[in-house]
Each structure stands twice: as C-alpha cells, then as structure tokens.
C-alpha cells in the first residue's frame, strides 16, 4: 500500500507543478501582453493574410504562428486573449465562489427555512440548460465583459452552494460545533469562525475548477459571437473564425484551441491535485 500511495503522491505532485507552471506562464503573458506580443493584435494586413506557421512553406518568420484571414498575427492575439480569459476566470470565479459558498454555508448550517428557500432555488437552477441560460442572460444584459461575469455568477453559484451546503451540514453535526453553541457564541460567528475554516479546502478546490469553467463559458459565448466587442481578441472568437476557415487555414483554429485546451486542463488538474493534497488519507 505504501508504494501505491507514493505513486499517487508523486503523480499528483507532477500534475500540480505542470498545471501551476502553465497557468503562471499564461498569467505573465496576460500581464505583460503589450510588451511580449510581437505585433498589434488588431493590425490587419490583407496582403499578409493566412500566412502559415513558421515550419510550413511560405511562412513569414515575423509571424511564427501564422496570420488569420485578415492578416492579424495569431500569436499576438493568443497572448492578448489570455487577458480576457484569465480576467474572467479570476473575477467571475471569485465572485461565484463568494456568493455560492456563503449561501451554501447558510443553508447547511442554519437549516430550516433558509435551507428550504436556497435549496428550492438550486432545484430550479438545475432544470436550466446552463449554456442556454448563459446565452439568454447575455442577450438580456448586452455583450461586454461585465455581462459575461454576471452571467457566470448567476448560473454557477449553485455549484458551490450544493457542495458547501452538504459539507456545512456534516460539520454542523460535529461535537466542536455543539460545544461552541453551548458556550453561547452567536450562530453567525460560529459559521464563519468554526465551520468556514473546515470547509475551506473544498472551497479552494471548487474555486480552481470554477476558474476553468469560467474560461470555457467565455470561449463558448465568444464562439456564438455574444462575448465582448470585436476589437478585443479572445480565444473563443479566434476559434469561431478558425472554424469557418478550417479548410483554408487550420492554424487559426488549432493554436487558440491548444491554448484553451491546456488552460482548462490545467485548472482542472490543479483542482484535482489540490483535492488530493488536502485529503488527509493521502497526506
């Protein structure tokens, strides 16, 4: 058994570092995008349209990953697209986490009517197809970064609420909570000071997973052309464009797709790695 545990630990460690490494790289690229990107991501050049990536015949070394149908540099657009992707992941993920976890804590610890109300809303939310709900909200709110963030928070709070409610419920049944109640502490302060620290590992794992989901939602909305204005490059809009010119210029689809794939995979593996890390059995 000791051997298997060591293997699981080593594998978990490797994927933690690999995914954290990729995300750090991406974060740096996003922050320093104007300094790193070789070209203006919006600069069009119709004479240099659909240049292939550097290893293909007819490539231009100045555009290592090629250009799209308007002659815009694919690499620069991916680097600038990281700003939107990570920005949405960070802001929408954190807000969703705060609201969802708070509602989950209240429902799970206070039980009674707050739980009834919150759980009923969770049921209703579960009956919506999430992508359709997101598109509907964007159509109502109008396109733009803040609309995307609001849509993600409105749709995904249930992910946190459901899990945290169950955890808070089992924590609330434990002796340490009972003794805090006997000691006459206020219930809200027990919730924040006693229950919250014990469900925090779960919250951190869910938050990491949620960031990956936020990146995907943004890409999907960009893909159906409902994200933010066209003068801000996003991976989703690049993918949508690449999907249309797939037979003429595959690289316009492939490179943003690889970036998106690795990013989503990293958030997810980071979350899973953290879950193992917090797991007392594996530790």
């Amino acid at each position: 058994m000791a051997d298997a545990r060591g293997l699981v630990k080593r594998r978990a460690g490797a994927r933690l570092w690999l995914s954290a490494g990729w995300l750090t790289l991406l974060a740096l690229a996003a922050v320093f995008a104007p300094l790193i990107a070789p070209h203006d991501p919006l600069a069009q050049d119709l004479f240099g349209a659909r240049l292939p990536p550097f290893w293909e015949h007819g490539a231009d070394a100045a555009f290592p990953l090629g250009t799209d149908s308007l002659g815009r540099d694919v690499l620069s657009r991916i680097i600038h697209g990281a700003r939107v992707a990570l920005g949405v992941a960070l802001i929408a993920g954190t807000l969703t986490c705060l609201i969802g976890a708070l509602l989950g804590l209240i429902a799970g610890y206070f039980r009674g009517w707050p739980d009834m109300v919150i759980s009923r809303f969770v049921d209703i939310w579960m009956a919506f197809p999430p992508v359709l709900f997101a598109i509907l909200l964007i159509a109502v709110l109008g396109t733009g970064l803040s609309s995307i963030i609001i849509a993600i928070v409105v749709i995904d709070w249930t992910r946190f609420a459901r899990v945290i409610r169950a955890e808070a419920m089992s924590q609330g049944a434990m002796d340490y909570v009972a003794s805090a109640q006997v000691a006459g502490r206020k219930r809200f302060s027990i919730m924040l000071a006693e229950i919250l620290p014990n469900v925090l590992p779960t919250i951190v794992v869910l938050l990491t997973l949620e960031m990956g989901i936020a990146v995907i939602v943004e890409a999907i909305l960009s893909f159906v052309n409902l994200s933010i204005s066209t003068d801000q490059p996003t991976w989703g809009s690049m993918i949508a464009e690449g999907r249309l010119s797939i037979h003429q210029a595959w690289w316009v689809l492939v490179f943003p797709l690889i970036t998106l794939f690795l990013t989503v995979l990293s958030f997810s593996q980071l979350g899973e790695g953290l879950k193992d890390h917090f797991d007392p059995v594996l530790r």
């Binding site: 989901i213 995907i216 997810s268 593996q269 899973e272």
Partner: peptide, 8 residues
C-alpha cells in the same frame, strides 16, 4: 476526458 468539456 473528465477535465475537458464536450465543446472542446
């Protein structure tokens, strides 16, 4: 397969 959604 679990980490990446159907869209991708």
């Amino acid at each position: 397969a679990l980490s990446v959604p159907d869209f991708l």
